[in-house]
Amino acid sequence: MFKHKYHFIFLVLLNGLFFGCVEPFDAATEDFESALVIDALITNEFKHQVVYLSRTFRLEDGISSGESNAAIKIEDSQGNEYVFQESVPGTYVSTNMFSAQPNVEYQLSITTSGGSSYISNSVVLPTNTSIDNLYAAVETNDQNVEGVAILVDTFDPEGESQYYRYDYEETYKIVAPRWNPQDLIVVSESPVIYGFAPRPREEQVCYNTVNSLNIILGNTTGFSEDRLTRFPIRFLDRFDYIIGHRYSILVRQYVISREAHSFYTTLNEFSGLESIFSENQPGFFSGNIIPQNDPKEKVVGFFDVSSVDSERIFFNHEDFFPEDLVPTYPDDCRITTPILGELFGAINFNTSKYAGPHEPEDASEGIYKLVPRVCGDCTVLGSSTIPDFWIE
């Protein structure tokens, strides 16, 4: 399940909105006002739905805290009630699996441990529109950089969808360029004796998964038909190491309401540092959640009910750039040949990996080649567990 990627942007943005003024930016927040942040999305997927609660934080603290011990429920217009329980601080999961249904109104209600109550506007599920095509193509971006663009085509012949949001989860293969099947180990510390042992786990090939953090919005209101063609989701420089071997991306398309699109658009406009920390802040903006105890209380969030569809694709670097070398690894993997006195720390503290034997030219060189651990052990950058969905 995707965690909402805009959740962190919520928190950073809100601090800018709450504490911004017409004076030049000062990182210290003297007049701090704690506010509840509500991140709630239910979809037409049959699953345990999730609601996130947190609090705004001081910019100098740099960390948010989950809002614990709240009572959360969603009620629908057919008399059903869905109760949520806290799984970890600030994360509330529905006790029963359910999916949003067409032509049914849903309303979120929250009561915090301090007795403050909040209720959302009633929301209905938008039309379900599938992704027609998810694909990758070689393109040159606005910065004149050549790479691979991830693109989506979608079409609603009834013209009822119009507003879309996207997020993605990308997974890529990592191959340690200086991996060696043998580990150099310290057999004895007094006297210091070195030996070799087979690698205890897979450290040559790994996989890393990263979720999108930006808010990707599309709409067709100004078009002659409800169609998005070659809509850009992601751009990858041809020399980006994450597409150096094999790459996969799972894209999720949410059909959202006009109100949700407006909210996310506003959030997007002020999600850059230039806007958040500018001298003139736009002031507070709210979503569709209303405080019941104090109408003047600041609360931000949006209760979103969306239909969702997803598609996944895979490709190799050579599919698009067959004549390229493998893109540059995150480390230059410089080989060192430490003498015995320096070797102990590098091996014992696992900061370097054995890369092979060395014939020293003088006393300043040792008999072993070492590389930074990241170059000989891919688990620094990912997991050696092959994802369940992975296809070679």
Results as ranks from 00 to 15, higher is better:
residue 11 L to D: 11
residue 343 L to Y: 09
residue 85 Q to S: 06
residue 146 E to N: 07
residue 233 I to M: 03
residue 378 C to V: 02
residue 243 I to H: 08
residue 328 T to C: 11
residue 243 I to L: 15
residue 67 E to A: 11
residue 82 Y to N: 03
residue 276 I to F: 05
residue 56 T to Q: 12
residue 85 Q to I: 02
residue 187 V to Y: 07
residue 197 A to Y: 08
residue 258 R to H: 08
residue 34 S to D: 09
residue 380 V to H: 11
residue 331 D to W: 03
residue 165 R to I: 06
residue 225 E to G: 04
residue 157 P to S: 07
residue 296 K to H: 03
residue 85 Q to E: 07
residue 235 F to N: 03
residue 158 E to W: 08
residue 316 N to D: 10
residue 297 E to R: 13
residue 337 T to C: 05
residue 381 L to K: 02
residue 324 D to E: 06
residue 34 S to N: 10
residue 62 G to P: 02
residue 162 Q to S: 06
residue 144 N to R: 07
residue 367 I to Q: 13
residue 270 F to I: 01
residue 183 D to F: 14
residue 390 W to F: 03
residue 280 N to T: 06
residue 266 T to Y: 12
residue 349 F to L: 13
residue 145 V to F: 06
residue 65 S to R: 04
residue 160 E to Y: 00
residue 146 E to T: 11
residue 386 I to L: 04
residue 134 L to Q: 05
residue 270 F to Y: 10
residue 166 Y to V: 08
residue 45 E to F: 00
residue 385 T to V: 14
residue 221 T to I: 14
residue 244 G to Q: 14
residue 322 P to T: 08
residue 64 S to D: 01
residue 287 G to V: 12
residue 176 A to C: 14
residue 17 L to Q: 11
residue 107 Q to Y: 00
residue 157 P to V: 05
residue 40 A to S: 15
residue 322 P to H: 08
residue 275 S to W: 00
residue 215 I to C: 05
residue 43 T to F: 01
residue 176 A to I: 10
residue 13 L to E: 13
residue 252 R to V: 02
residue 232 P to N: 07
residue 139 E to H: 06
residue 333 C to M: 03
residue 327 P to Y: 13
residue 233 I to Y: 01
residue 357 P to Q: 12
residue 177 P to M: 12
residue 5 K to F: 09
residue 76 D to A: 09
residue 285 F to S: 01
residue 243 I to R: 12
residue 144 N to W: 06
residue 44 N to V: 01
residue 169 E to G: 09
residue 277 F to A: 07
residue 200 P to H: 09
residue 49 Q to S: 14
residue 34 S to C: 05
residue 380 V to S: 13
residue 366 G to N: 06
residue 182 Q to E: 04
residue 166 Y to A: 03
residue 106 Y to A: 07
residue 256 I to T: 07
residue 18 F to H: 14
residue 296 K to P: 00
residue 84 F to D: 11
residue 391 I to Y: 00
residue 252 R to T: 06
residue 118 Y to H: 04
residue 155 F to T: 05
residue 351 T to I: 14
residue 163 Y to W: 06
residue 13 L to A: 11
residue 43 T to E: 01
residue 106 Y to Q: 02
residue 21 C to S: 15
residue 245 H to M: 11
residue 192 V to L: 15
residue 197 A to C: 02
residue 174 I to A: 11
residue 259 E to L: 12
residue 113 S to H: 06
residue 144 N to E: 03
residue 316 N to Y: 04
